[in-house]
Amino acid sequence: MLQLDKINSGYGRAQILRDLSLTVESGEILCLLGRNGAGKTTTMKTIMGLLPLMSGQITLDGQDVGQLPPHEVPRRGIGYVPQGRRLFTGLSVAQNLEIGLRTRKSGQDTLEEVLTLFPRLRERYRQRAETLSGGEQQMLATARALCLRPKVLLLDEPTEGLQPSMIEAIRQVIVQMRATGVAVLLVEQRVDAVLSVADRVAFIENGQGGAVVPAETLRQDHSIVERYIGV
């Protein structure tokens, strides 16, 4: 279970997040919804320790992870699929996955599991990461994060710019992860995509937390979505 308690964070002196609180339970998909610039990506980077935590607390299963040096955060079991994939270019698919495996000293069995989830990556195993198609790159970015057997998975717009079949494949994997008890924090722009997988939706506005509502409620009543993100 990942818990953010009144966190404040930002870039240098520009504060973005103000007293944001969130809880992601194990085995649930929490979707963070908000306008551009609302602080969604900032939230993820702050969890990863890539942006300084000005105040507040981040805990994983009760343990404080907000004060750790950034490279220790993933070692506690937080997998990050960043916006724009950000693969290690110049390295092969195999090497990208190896970096993921090394994070928490995962073994070959983890690699096998991940490759079973994404058979396409097995076919492309020796290819350089940047030669993959957009969808395959997203698969690799997701697979790399799964290689560290995460307790928490952070996904930042994982379906951005992908064709429908790829979106479906990524979605399947996210749902499978939920079934194995992973806490999933998902940032997604497209409301319909959110509502098809999310258990709960947390709204964020100007770096501040808004309502947290069950996805079921939103599926029945769209008006609250429009109030937060407008169309």
């Binding site: 890539l50 955060v73 993933p74 950000r86 390295l91």
Partner: peptide
């Protein structure tokens, strides 16, 4: 080489 490509992602992978 991973650090060379993307410092932030290197950190995000321990």
């Amino acid at each position: 080489r991973a650090t060379q490509t993307d410092r932030e992602m290197a950190l995000a992978f321990g």
